[in-house]
Design a protein around this nucleic acid. Structure first.
Length: 257
DNA sequence: ATGCCCTCGCAACGAGGA
């Protein structure tokens, strides 16, 4: 079973890229972020024609998350994180697929920091961490995957000194990520590539892709029960080089039965 | 210190992204 995450940066503008990648990579489960489409503008027909069932939580212009599953429909278990009834941003969706609980998330960017957007990021992160702790008590195979907007360590940044004051790399955010993982989650990309520079994002600016000036901000965290079955993890980097590419590349894990 | 590039939108001297 292959579980992937892909920040598409606009699902309708990016549909050809998404469909091509689905056909080539054949992931079983896909978490999408940044749909940038309202609920009624999700391209359900094209996704179904590609062989995937889907659930999604759209939002006009920004955010938006979806879970796709090949040959079956995801069974939705949650829409939105608990803890803030007033939060209207579409950033969390959860479903069961073939015996694995999938949490698909798009953590806030948080720039500029400090400021209200950074406060919202930390508050959202705290709610995610609280919910993740509850999930672990079930002792089930669980994957928490998506765009976390955090580079966990200096190995995850092409030039760490340039990012020290950025909301994606500030100490508070790295600490929050560390505390989440310390609950017992396995950072699968790092586990399979302990010393390597593995990036999932390259800015559109400054020829970042051409210079390999990347960041690792998309993560696949596995519960202990699921981590036992981890067979491989990697990034489909070449997708970033396609025409009309997203600024993120898909990242994935392979899980054995 | 800022723009660079890119998306969505109902058109902007824009917002947000990371």
């Amino acid at each position: 079973m292959k579980i992937a995450t892909f920040n598409v940066n606009g699902i309708n503008g990016r549909l050809r890229v998404l469909l091509r990648w689905l056909a080539e990579a054949e992931p079983d489960v896909v978490c999408l972020q940044e749909l940038k489409a309202p609920q009624d503008r999700f391209p359900e027909g094209a996704i179904r024609n590609a062989g995937y069932g889907a659930i999604w939580q759209g939002q006009k212009s920004w955010n938006g998350v979806a879970i796709l599953s090949r040959g079956t429909d995801p069974i939705e278990t949650r829409r939105g994180l608990p803890g803030d009834e007033l939060d209207s941003q579409s950033r969390y969706l959860e479903a069961a697929v073939n015996g694995v609980l999938i949490g698909c998330l798009y953590l806030p960017n948080g720039n500029p920091a400090p400021g209200p957007k950074f406060d919202y990021k930390l508050e959202w992160f705290a709610r995610l961490t609280a919910h993740a702790a509850v999930l672990l008590t079930h002792q089930l195979p669980i994957a928490l995957v998506g765009d976390f907007n955090v580079m966990p360590t200096e190995l995850d940044v092409y030039k760490p000194e340039r990012w020290m004051d950025d909301a994606l790399f500030r100490p508070e955010v790295r600490q929050a990520f560390h505390e989440l993982v310390a609950q017992g989650w396995v950072d699968s990309l790092r586990k399979m590539h302990p010393h390597e520079r593995v990036y999932t994002f390259w800015d559109y600016f400054r020829n970042a892709w051409g210079r390999n000036a990347g960041l690792r901000i998309d993560h696949l965290l596995l519960s202990p029960e699921l981590a036992k079955r981890l067979d491989g993890a990697d990034v489909d980097r070449w997708v970033r080089g396609w025409e009309k590419a997203s600024d993120h590349a898909p990242a994935w894990v392979r899980i054995h039965d």
